[in-house]
């Protein structure tokens, strides 16, 4: 560990933790001038009297993967769920500060939450397919949002979404089988397909691979990498290597505060904060 940290300090591109190689690819430098897709400013979040997010300010740029890391309970999920207002359904919660998506405040009274959630898709930590057929799972969002005009169009969109989620080849012959008959990894890709079907602009993923084996995890990671061409992706992960592999920007949370956010390379090799360094090198957390 210590060696690792030394290496990191020396600016050598060295992934933290294990013997894994350095992050495979160069992060795309976000143009600070360009408009962010999501701009969070001074976000405080309360569950009843407990403040679990404390003045979080963060810009998330389009067509990039932003990884949220930090120890358990630091507020990553809460932050993620405030981006599509999923926390609204938890009684007794309160939000302060602002979250702008494309410059529009999503907590403004005029905002239609249902429409917001269609634009900001979400994939959950534990895959949660509906107890319906594979086809119906993907078609669900299209149906409720009345996004297709004909049966053929619906079928086409379902197929395209399953392809985008790299699941089509495995399920093409059994689209009408129960979604619960799929393996865990397939179920998670089905949930991704389901989210993609309604053509969101942003995809929020809360530890999407935490319950999966290494091969299924790898498939999800490849998928995330491919999807960023079309979507803005925010992903929560506990796995440092995963963050290093898939993300362009990494944001480190600690006790409800955003300690540091920067290019992933930089966070893992030369973080500005001591706390970040201790965390990514595995000294705590």
């Amino acid at each position: 560990m210590l060696l690792n940290a030394e290496a990191a300090k020396a600016g050598q591109p060295r992934a933290p933790g294990a013997d894994s190689p350095a992050p495979a690819r160069e992060s795309v430098v976000p143009n600070p001038e360009s408009d962010p897709k999501i701009a969070v400013a001074g976000l405080n979040f309360y569950y009843g009297p407990n403040r679990v997010l404390d003045g979080v300010t963060l810009k998330i740029h389009p067509n990039q993967v932003t990884a949220l890391i930090g120890p358990s309970g630091c507020g990553k999920s809460t932050f993620l769920r405030s981006l599509n207002r999923m926390n609204d359904i938890v009684p007794g919660t309160r939000v302060e500060g602002s979250i702008l998506i494309d410059g529009q405040d999503i907590y403004a009274p005029s905002v239609d939450v249902v429409d917001l959630r269609r634009r900001v898709g979400m994939v959950f930590q534990k895959s949660n397919p509906f107890p319906k057929s594979i086809f119906e799972n993907v078609a669900y969002g299209l149906r409720i949002n009345r996004m297709t005009r004909s049966r053929e169009e619906l079928g086409g969109r379902v197929e395209a979404s399953l392809k985008a989620a790299a699941l089509w080849d495995e399920v093409r012959d059994r689209l009408h089988a129960s979604a619960l008959s799929l393996s865990g990894g397939q179920q998670q890709r089905l949930c991704i397909a389901r989210a993609l079907a309604v053509e969101p602009e942003i995809l929020l993923m809360d530890e999407p691979a935490s319950a999966l084996d290494p091969i299924a995890t790898q498939r999800i990671e490849e998928l995330v990498y491919q999807l960023k061409d079309r979507y803005t992706i925010v992903i929560v992960t506990h796995n440092m290597q995963q963050a290093a592999r898939v993300s362009d920007v990494t944001a480190f949370f600690w006790l409800g505060k955003l300690i540091e956010s920067d290019l992933t390379n930089k966070i893992f090799t030369a973080p500005a904060e001591k706390l970040t360094e201790d965390y990514v090198t595995g000294r705590f957390g």
Binding site: V114, M122, P129, F130, P131, C191
Partner: peptide, 25 residues
């Protein structure tokens, strides 16, 4: 509850989530 959240996250209204996902389940 994750089942309901899944439906809401796709843009379902509360009633829609209940009647098309939770109740059938």
């Amino acid at each position: 509850g994750t089942m309901r959240e899944g439906a809401l996250a796709l843009g379902a209204t509360r009633a829609r989530a209940v009647f098309s996902v939770v109740l059938p389940a």
